[in-house]
């Protein structure tokens, strides 16, 4: 059963066809990868799914419902969270605050409550605080709770971004090149973290990655994008031998990182 389904999705920027007639599925509970050479339109696909851009054609079904036209915040509430290729933490705010903000849409108290700061307000705030701190702990970031997010080491910033995304309690987590800029040891740790996330929170993960090693080691399904078109889909092994994939990657050192 596909949790996310793209049906003939297209997006044009002026004369540039960034994504063309893309049809693919992300099965529930699995790890799916989207790979492709630089500029293939991978991040654009994420932007289309999360409502940053509106597709010029096609449908995006999440759990059977069309997402096209919904604002990003509404899509998050349906259960899709993401990270960014270039880290987009709230750098001036503390790590804790970064995660607390992710609870925004779940807050139920109204103006009366925040005006008076009475018991219902305090109880809900307390619950958010506890949940946020727990996310930091789960990701081994608790000691940074009151540090500005921008002051964290690079690898921890990447992890904090994932923690923040998870705090929205998504059913589908989109990771945009989570291993970018990491050394092999860090990549190894990240792969473990992703497996752990999937196992512990039953979250479906769809990730863009450049490093083939990571994709091959993690994912059950791989989709390959080139010039905005899907050129291959399948298991990592099938995709690796696919002639069109080899061709697309040849210019960049076939199958390399």
């Amino acid at each position: 059963m596909a949790l996310l389904e793209l049906q003939g999705v297209s997006r044009r920027f002026g004369g540039l066809q960034a994504v063309a007639d893309l049809t693919l599925q992300v099965p529930e509970g699995e790890l799916t990868a989207l790979i492709g050479p630089n500029g293939a339109g991978k991040t654009t696909v994420f932007n289309l799914i999360t409502g940053v851009y509106r597709p010029t054609g096609g449908r995006i079904l999440f759990d059977g419902q069309d997402l096209v036209g919904l604002p990003p915040a509404a899509i998050v509430q349906r259960g899709i969270a993401r990270t960014f290729q270039s880290i987009r933490l709230f750098k001036g705010l503390t790590a804790l605050e970064n995660v607390r903000i992710a609870h925004f849409a779940r807050v139920t108290y109204g103006p009366g409550a925040w005006l008076s700061r009475g018991r219902p307000f305090r109880e809900e705030e307390e619950a958010i605080l506890a949940a946020s701190y727990q996310w930091l702990e789960r990701f081994g970031l608790a000691r940074y709770a009151l540090e500005p997010a921008g002051s964290l080491p690079y690898g921890d910033q990447r992890r904090l971004e994932i923690a923040r995304a998870m705090a929205t309690r998504p059913r589908l987590l989109l990771l945009d090149e989570p291993a970018a800029g990491m050394n092999p040891a860090e990549v190894e740790a990240l792969m473990e973290l992703i497996r752990w996330l999937q196992a512990s929170f039953q979250v479906t993960i769809f990730l863009i990655e450049h490093q083939m090693r990571m994709v091959m080691g993690l994912c059950q399904v791989v989709h390959v994008l080139d010039f905005g078109r899907l050129i291959a889909s399948g298991t990592p092994d099938e995709v690796r031998r696919h002639p069109r994939v080899l061709e697309a990657y040849l210019g960049q050192g076939a199958g390399g990182s």
Binding site: F90, L93, I101, Y109, W114, T168
Partner: peptide, 21 residues
Amino acid sequence: ANLGRGVLAIREDEVAAELLG
């Protein structure tokens, strides 16, 4: 409070805020 945290999030990164709900 919650809206105030939203205000800070907009200052820091409006797009990221929107994409966190």
